[in-house]
Design a protein around this nucleic acid. Structure first.
Lengths: 126, 126
DNA sequence: ATAAGACTTCGAGCGCACTCTAAGTCAAAT
DNA sequence: ATTTGACTTAGAGTGCGCTCGAAGTCTTAT
């Protein structure tokens, strides 16, 4: 239900990002968007390309387990203007450390699972 | 509060595994243990080394986002006896695929985050 | 002997992140 | 003209995984 080359309907954004329209509205309500999404004359949301770019980045933060509240902190800094760059950088660097720790833990876990898998495979082929 | 060299109190297991005593009891109630944990004469739980080994593996499954219900499926297979080995192997192999997919997604996400971090660092040093 | 503290049970409560419902408006298709 | 289906809102409901509370028992230290 695209209304122009420049603006996308919520269903388009849902299709592009893999989020449901419910979730997109929820994210906006939860203060995770950089600004309220533009509305048509009939008050339907009109997403810009930049909005989609942001939603896409947002899903990267979420898929690395950044809590909604932290994303909101980041967004509030972004809305506060250019002089919060250092604070936003710090927030991302701290998050990056968490992600690296998660990856390490998962890597250790998969090694344990692989070990178990190997014992099953030996047992079964025997 | 260890009661012997062979059996461990719930608080010991909590300390060893990083889980809370509440969580250990919850896991048992939820059917995630291979069998009910032995009790002392005063009905306090007495964990064996094998129990701790299992809890440790269980935390590996959980830390790779295996749902409680799937862990329970695995445990029920294990309880059903030796001839469910193939089914347990299959369950672990499917889980392994999920974990690899998660790792890939997180790796893509961290790349996007790193890109963003780099733009902040350029902006700040400029 | 008494007090402190760890244990027990069962069930309720919580936090997170959606996810859905209901009632209503609007636009495009037949 | 009417039906279909997507959209809107506010608020309630859901599912998961714990997490806690209350009331009581038992052990250990003073």
């Amino acid at each position: 239900m695209t209304t122009s080359a420049q603006s996308l309907a919520i269903s388009d954004v849902a299709a592009l990002t893999g989020l449901s329209t419910h979730t997109l509205r929820y994210y906006e309500r939860a203060g995770l968007m950089l600004h309220p999404i533009d509305r048509s004359s009939t008050s339907q949301r009109q997403y810009s390309e930049a909005d989609v770019t942001w939603v896409t980045f947002l899903t990267k933060l979420r898929s690395t387990a950044m809590p909604i509240a932290r994303v909101r902190d980041y967004v509030e800094l972004a809305r506060a203007g250019e002089d919060t760059s250092a604070a936003r950088l710090e927030l991302l660097l701290i998050h990056r450390m968490n992600v690296v720790a998660q990856l390490e833990e998962m890597t250790k876990s998969i090694a344990a699972i692989d070990f178990k898998i190997a014992t099953y495979q030996e047992r079964i082929t025997a």
